[in-house]
């Protein structure tokens, strides 16, 4: 069934797109990047990081671009002083939630959180660092999980469940005490459901999931490979 073409306004500019796309996709097609962290091409969106919030007018209710479908005649504002301020606070919150010392991180230079912080000009934080005492899981041969770098975007959870079909990962607890777990909160190596495919590692936007043996700055994620795999799988279904 051919999709219906519709037009919307993004930051005042008239953009033609097709019904069924999200605002995030339509904006990207039009060459506009809306910041995001929990979104990854090929995975179901969850609207968790709130960085891609856009203003649809009418009372100031904000909507996540990643899960909001385009509608004929829609006027979307993707950037405003208010949105920028909110995005900065979100980054400040993420940076202080755990431990993000870039200089000692394998993902330094290749980290989506770091890149966004620098793009949005977050150079200092106004909140105290939480620095919870979180473990490093080195049990697996090829990969490592560092909870201190995890931002709970759940990209690993989704890629493992939806693309790989293993569902090794999930999140335990709630609120600020939420933690990424494998199987029954056991060492990763003992999680029998893991296929060792490494898709989670390639999907991780930060240095939380990484390949073993990588030194600072060496961990470059091959996110596109996972996206391709996801799209192949979708095509088959």
């Amino acid at each position: 069934m051919p999709q219906k073409r519709i037009s919307i306004r993004i930051d005042g500019e008239l953009v033609s797109t097709v019904e069924g796309k999200t605002i995030l996709e339509a904006a990207r097609d039009a060459g506009r990047r809306i910041p995001s962290l929990c979104h990854m091409d090929g995975l179901t969106d969850v609207g968790a990081c709130r960085l891609c919030l856009v203003d649809l007018g009418g009372g100031g209710r904000l909507a996540p671009a990643c899960t909001t479908p385009v509608q004929e005649g829609q006027a979307v504002i993707t950037n405003s002083p208010r949105l920028l301020a909110y995005r900065r606070v979100i980054l400040e919150l993420l940076l202080t939630e755990r431990n993000h010392i870039c200089s000692v991180c394998v993902a330094n230079g290749n980290c989506e959180l770091q890149a966004l912080a620098s793009a949005l000009g977050v150079t200092s934080v106004r909140f105290p660092y939480r620095y919870p005492n979180l473990p490093l899981d080195l049990s697996r041969d090829r990969f490592v999980l560092d909870q201190n770098r995890c931002i709970l975007c759940t990209r690993c959870v989704r890629v493992c469940a939806d693309v790989e079909g293993a569902h090794v990962w999930d999140v335990k607890g709630r609120g600020i005490y939420s933690r990424l777990i494998s199987d029954l909160d056991q060492p990763w190596a003992s999680a029998a459901s893991c296929t060792d495919c490494g898709k989670c590692v390639q999907s991780c936007p930060t240095g939380a999931l990484a390949e073993k043996g990588k030194a600072v700055e060496e961990m470059v994620k091959q996110t596109w490979q996972v996206t391709n795999a996801a799209e192949r799988k979708r095509a088959v279904l």
């Binding site: 090794v168 999930d170 335990k172 607890g173 709630r174 777990i181 199987d183 029954l184």
Partner: peptide, 25 residues
């Protein structure tokens, strides 16, 4: 206990991590 959780997971075809997520949520 964890043996119960594993048994329920196996019998209901639910991933272990999902069971653990639910029981801690």
């Amino acid at each position: 206990c964890s043996s119960e959780l594993r048994y329920i997971a196996a019998k209901t075809n639910t991933p272990l991590s999902q069971i653990f997520s639910v029981t801690t949520f």
